[in-house]
Design a protein around this nucleic acid. Sequence first.
DNA 1: ATGGTGATGACAGCTACTGACATCGATCGG
DNA 2: CCGATCGATGTCAGTAGCTGTCATCACCAT
Lengths: 173, 173
Amino acid sequence: MELYAERGFDATTVADIAERAGLTERTFFRHFADKREVLFSGGEVLQQAVVDGITAVDPGATSIEAAVRGLETATADFFAPAVRPHSRARQRIIDAHPELQERELIKMARLARAIAEALRERGVAEPSATLTAETAVVIFRVSFDRWVADGDVSTFGALLRESLDGLRSVAAA
Amino acid sequence: MELYAERGFDATTVADIAERAGLTERTFFRHFADKREVLFSGGEVLQQAVVDGITAVDPGATSIEAAVRGLETATADFFAPAVRPHSRARQRIIDAHPELQERELIKMARLARAIAEALRERGVAEPSATLTAETAVVIFRVSFDRWVADGDVSTFGALLRESLDGLRSVAAA
DNA sequence: ATGGTGATGACAGCTACTGACATCGATCGG
DNA sequence: CCGATCGATGTCAGTAGCTGTCATCACCAT
């Protein structure tokens, strides 16, 4: 991430990264599937936390409530105020490179699938499960954008709530 | 697409494609940004059609109604029953290759941004415009999946309506 | 000490993609 | 009717991402 920030994603070769890390280029590719993956390696952990959060929600909750509550508990650990500068730096790099956005998007798609599966475990039928999961991910993304943005100082959980409310009024219209 | 279907995306080189097309490898890259783009080249046309459709909707309509109506008019031209076999073949290739899914996802993201812009033109404020646009794209994707799936024989417009209803009940919960 | 295992290095190779320059055909002004 | 121009293509060389294969080495268990 240092190198990507310093000279840009395209301008840094895998050889550069390997050198700074004191390793071989080959070894880099044994740890990361490709050059982009470096920025996304922690993703499965968050995904698992969200899934765990959803299954922990009281069974009486509606599907969208369960999904958002799962996001709330998971993001409370991952998106503490202290990590905001790091997240912001990371996001600046991603936003500047379409290839990285592609990777980010597929991670989100996987998150949606995992959420849908967790909802089905709770007894939510299709197509509600998928629809709810996709909606939850939209809420997550909108919230994340606002959380990373400079001006906003709300907590992630509060932003999730606001986004959910916003979406409810949009859908009700 | 012939070659991708015959021997798989990974197993076909650009040299193969160029040869079958009777052209040079270099010429291929002058027409398509990269190897994946071949499968997505028509995307901007659909996007423009959706945007045009949205701006044509009567100004009194709500934002989500305008977005879905825009999708309806655009998809009526692009997703006629006759093109279903082609769409299905294309989708089979994409579904088998994560790299292609990445590209598809970023196209969807661009579509969402274009829809949001069209909604803002209609006077919809943020964050409603973005939220509505993302929601509309979810509806589009769910509908497209069902339209491409074997069993279903509904028209695309009907599927859009059903998905919108489904999402409304999810969000209302 | 021996053998197994997991991480790394070394090296060769393929292919996606790019830049630079030459060629060629069509078109258009004189 | 000729030459200039322009757009599309061919040619060639080069870079870099990524992979397969084999050797090495540290560590651990028996």
